[in-house]
Design a protein around this nucleic acid. Sequence first.
DNA 1: CGTTTTTGACCCGCGC
DNA 2: GCGCGGGTCAAAAACG
Length: 557
Amino acid sequence: MDIGWSGLTLDSSSLDLINPKRFKSNNTHRLFTNPLTMSTTGGDVDDNKTKTSNAASEFRFPESLSGIQDREHDEFSSGVARENDREVLGEVDFFSDKKSRVCRDDVYDAGFRVKKEEQDDRTDVNTCLNLRTRSDQSVTDDEESSEMEDKRTKNEMVKLRDELKKVTIENQKLRELLTQVSNSYASLQMHLVSLMQQQQEQQNKAIEAADKSEETIVPRQFLDLDLFRAPGQAEDVSNSSSEDRTRSGGSFAAEKRNNEVRDGKRLGREEIPETESNKVQKVNNNSQTTFDQPTEAIMRKARVSVRARSEAPMISDGCQWRKYGQKMAKGNPCPRAYYRCTMATGCPVRKQVQRCAEDRSILITTYEGNHNHPLPPAAVAMASTTTAAANMLLSGSISSHDGMMNPTNLLARAVLPCSTSMATISASAPFPTVTLDLTHSPPPPNGSNSTPSIAAANNNIHHNLLTQRPQQQQMTNLSPDILPHVIGQALYNQSKFSGLQFSGGFPSAAFSQPHAVANTITALTADPNFTAALAAVITSMINDSNHRVGEGNNKNQ
DNA sequence: CGTTTTTGACCCGCGC
DNA sequence: GCGCGGGTCAAAAACG
């Protein structure tokens, strides 16, 4: 333990806690080197029962914090200083109280201190004698008592330091809690806005559907929502966790297809069979009841695509995947691989991995769906990314591209308007996709490589953990391996899944992280710049997509 | 031997 | 209705 550091911290805290005005007149000397100034000022401020006791206590406090310097005071201080040395006796009891109380007492209740001194078997008479006579004998007594007092003072100081540490830690925890609550509040607001917009859109859709056809054209999302929801889950959609909300977060069309043929050949693996009559019934109910369900449907449809330079066949996102297919996609000589999350049976999360046709060093990983199981810390990041991206898409509009692209959501307005080209939103069919493009960085302010290698990026990450870096670069230099962790965790912190993923094992997984990852995430999220960087990412997504929509040039994977 | 990957077949939506 | 493309299944093969 660095005593010096601790002492300084304590002093500074004490400065804040006592009365900053008191030290205004001080020069550059350390706190304990200016007892007279302090005592004088304090004497003026306090309303005093005895001026001596006030003066003594005023500079006693910092002196005790330093845990030394009695002799130094004798060296250059006046008789008042000596008096103060003696008066340290009263300081012991004084510091036996909690710090905050000490400070309050110190400033506002001189009389209280006098009583404390009396309790310490020391009388005002002694003090007065010392003040008036300053005889050799009294000085000797004072020295002896000062030595004893020093020991006691040191002990008290140790206690105080421990106490201060505890208070500091507690304060930090409270701040973090406040930040989380604020983020949750913001995300909930965002979610509310999205729900209101969806309500509006839903009404418009219903009107249009009624006009176009007599046949029931119910949004398929509704069907899917109910089909994938286990019995009993339909009632608590708004409160459900991510896993509940994403009973089938995979390919929307495919899942729908599976559902449609469920009565026949393909009985779903994880889905629960349901009859057509049930579908219709639920559809009818849904059209009247909840607005969360279209939201949920869109969340399943939403995808998050990550473009990153990587020689590895896959970016490590913390999850376990099983390859279930591979296809040659049109317009790309590189095959597209399909993976399914195998961390839990029935987990609907899937991802596609494909190399970019233009630049095969770029790996495009597209995620869809939300996990229905607790996740390891590293996986929390990417899972949160996909969900947050879905929420972000929802924060605009689910059916109107213009509406979706308008940065009307609260988060977008709240964040800094710094924009990069690393993130785009594609609202074109069939799935709205958020693309995080990590293959090109904005002009680096310190001359770092615009397309850093993985190793270099890792170095940057590690460096970022220790130093404050420009947020843009901090986000865009992330290595493909770490990026999901960073962004995902950030989005997780930012949105808390719009308040939708608090239940279940997800948060527990997030907060029971192994130390290494936890430290990394903590270091990142504790950085206020990181929050701003996160906001910048989301803003850039919205802003960038705004431009693209305006140009009628939607980017699609 | 259990798990994972490969790969051809299959299904479906969509456009023509 | 047909073909195309995307996505998934499932048996076989490969792997540890």
